[in-house]
Design a binder for these strands. Structure first.
Lengths: 125, 125
DNA sequence: TTGTTATTGCAACATTGTTGCAATAGTTTA
DNA sequence: TAAACTATTGCAACAATGTTGCAATAACAA
C-alpha cells in the first residue's frame, strides 16, 4: 500500500462527503466542492478512499457510481449489507438502517451485495 | 402506444433472451444473436420490450443494463421485487426465487427496487 | 400493389469512468 | 532550510455504454 498524502482535493472531497452524509456522484461532489479539481483527480481520490475502506461505492439504477462515508455502517458494522435509498429529486443516496436479508440456493457464492431503492425522500416530498 | 411490427431483429432478440433465461447486456445479446443488427437497434428493441412489459431491466454493479424475460417473475407475479444474481464468470444475471423484503422509514416513497448479488454461479464454480 | 408509418442503419453525440505522462507538490531526510 | 523521493495532479486521450436525428427501408393494412 502506498503512503497517502494530504492534499487539498482529498480533504475537500472528504469534507463534502462527511458533511452531506449522503452518497454522492463525482459530478455532485465536483459541484459542492470549494476547490478546483480535475474530474480524474476526484475519481482517483474516491477510489483511494474505497481502497482504504474510508468510503464505499454504490451503483444506482442510473448506472452511476455513488460514494459515501456511511456513518451507520461504521457504527453497526453492517458493511455493505444494507439498503440504500436514491432520491430522484435531490440526486443523493442515503444508507437505510434496514439490513438486507437473503438466502441463495446452494452453489451460489455471493461476493457483494448491491441493493438500491429508488424514489423520493422525505425532505423532497 | 404505437403498433408493434414483427421484425427479424426483434424476434432474434426475444429468442435469445427466452432461450438463455438469463438477463443479458446488449453486447452479449449482439454476440449470441444470429442476425446482423445495429447496436442502436438492439437497444431500441429492448427498450420497446420494457415498455410493453415483456422484459425487465436490471442495473448491475458494473453499471451496465441487463435485460431479462424473467420466467419466475411471470409465474409468481413478483414483478421487480426479487433478487438478481450476477455471475462475474459467465457475465449473465439470473433471477433468484428469493423475494426482496424491506421496510423504509416514514416519508420515503419507493418507486423501484434494484437488488443484485454478485459472485460466481454454481455452473461456473 | 400501393400507401402509411414503424423500424432500421448510420453517424454523431453525451455521459461516465479510466489511463498515460509530464509537471507539481507532499513528506522525509540530511 | 534545502534536497531527494515519489504520491498526486492536470491534461489529454481513450474506452465503453447508451441515446438521438434523419433519411432509407420494410412491415402491414387497405
Amino acid at each position: 500500500m502506498l503512503k497517502r498524502r494530504n492534499t487539498t482535493t482529498k480533504e475537500a472531497v472528504l469534507s463534502v462527503l462527511t458533511s452531506k452524509r449522503r452518497a454522492m456522484s463525482q459530478d455532485a461532489i465536483m459541484q459542492q466542492i470549494g476547490v478546483n479539481a480535475d474530474r480524474a483527480t476526484i475519481y482517483r481520490v474516491l477510489n483511494r478512499f474505497c481502497e482504504d475502506g474510508l468510503v464505499h461505492k454504490i451503483i444506482a439504477e442510473d448506472g452511476k457510481q455513488y460514494f459515501a462515508v456511511c456513518m451507520k455502517c461504521d457504527e453497526t458494522k453492517l458493511a455493505d449489507n444494507h439498503f440504500h435509498f436514491r432520491c430522484t429529486s435531490c440526486q443523493t443516496i442515503e444508507c437505510l438502517p434496514e439490513a438486507v436479508h437473503f438466502s441463495v440456493p446452494n452453489g451460489y457464492n455471493v461476493e457483494s451485495v448491491n441493493c438500491v431503492l429508488t424514489g423520493v425522500c422525505p425532505q423532497c416530498s
